[in-house]
Amino acid sequence: MFYKPSEGHGLPHNPFNAIVAPRPIGWISTRGSLGDNLAPYSFFNAVAYVPPQVMFASTTAKPDRDNTKDTVAQIRESGVFCVNMVTEALIDAMNTSSAPLDAGVDEFLAAGLEKAACETIDCPRVAAAPAALECRVTQIVPLLGHSNVLVLGEVTGVHIRPDCLQDGRYLPPDRLTRLGYKDYAAVRETFELDRPPGG
């Protein structure tokens, strides 16, 4: 089949985010005047090595947050955020934190998660996460469409859970990914591939 997104796909569910998959999940924690917040975003990835930078996009809004969500509202206020990585063991807590709770309700508490302090920014992180990236905002970019916002940040601190370091390499038990629809996958099988010379 072929379809133009502007004209609709005619399918029971939008296939777009299932086509661009798997995607890592950025479990974003923030702190603002209303308290601490935690929410997962599957439009997330790393975008540069030096300095290390990441991005995530927020694509919906809450009525109590002026055409955005708690995460972006608090990032606009503080200028910082933390990206917590997710493993299958954390899937229930991650899913719980995706609920559209009222602004000011702490998802860490709702999901039964322990907080840990960040080192370079004033923000909580998920203590049980296999890794966490402390970030300072570099840009907040409005995107086409209603409530679509791109957030870019420079990584200023990196936490790695000790059991996820093996022979000097980051090796978590698995990496939880989003596949679209209600589908997720825990990546456990990996292989190495050498690039061509100069690649």
Rank of each mutant, 00 (worst) to 15 (best):
R188C: 06
R76W: 15
S147C: 06
R76A: 03
T177K: 02
L11M: 12
P100N: 07
E77P: 05
A103Y: 13
T120C: 08
V80G: 03
A103K: 10
R188Q: 11
P172M: 12
L165M: 14
G198H: 13
L109W: 00
T68D: 13
N84A: 02
A131V: 02
R178T: 12
N67T: 14
G79P: 02
E114S: 00
P22Q: 01
L11Y: 10
C82F: 10
Y41N: 01
M1Q: 13
E77S: 05
A21P: 00
L150H: 05
R76Q: 12
A57C: 13
A132N: 03
A61N: 12
D163H: 09
L133N: 04
G199Q: 11
A61V: 13
S78L: 06
G112N: 03
S29A: 05
T156D: 02
S6P: 09
Y181K: 11
D183L: 07
G180E: 06
C118T: 01
V105Q: 02
D36A: 08
D102Q: 12
A116Y: 09
P197V: 09
E189Y: 09
K4V: 12
A89C: 06
F44C: 04
V187N: 01
I91A: 14
A57Y: 06
I75P: 01
T59Y: 14
I19G: 10
N14M: 12
T156W: 05
T177R: 02
A73Y: 15
R136E: 14
G35N: 04
V126W: 10
L152G: 00
V126A: 00
T87W: 08
E88M: 11
I160M: 08
E134L: 02
R175S: 11
T71K: 05
D174K: 08
P173H: 15
G198W: 14
V20H: 06
L193C: 02
L152M: 11
T87L: 10
I91D: 11
G79E: 11
S58K: 06
H13Q: 15
Y3W: 13
Q166C: 12
P130S: 04
P172I: 00
P5K: 11
D167G: 04
M55L: 14
P197G: 07
P196F: 11
Q139I: 05
S58D: 09
R31S: 07
N84I: 07
V83I: 08
P5Q: 12
V54A: 08
I160Q: 08
H13S: 13
T60G: 10
P100L: 00
F44N: 05
L176M: 10
N95E: 10
P172Y: 14
A39F: 15
D102C: 06
V20I: 09
G112V: 03
N45C: 10
A185H: 11
V47P: 09
L38A: 03
T87P: 05
A185E: 04
N95K: 05
K62S: 15
F43I: 15
D102I: 09
A111V: 00
E77Y: 11
T60P: 03
R175D: 08
S42W: 00
C118Y: 03
A18M: 00
C135D: 06
A89R: 12
S6M: 09
P162W: 06
V155W: 02
S6L: 12
T60W: 14
A103Q: 09
H9I: 13
V80D: 07
F191Q: 12
E107P: 08
R125C: 01
A185V: 08
I140S: 00
D183T: 03
Q139L: 05
H159R: 08
H159Y: 14
G198L: 14
S42H: 01
Y170L: 13
D183G: 07
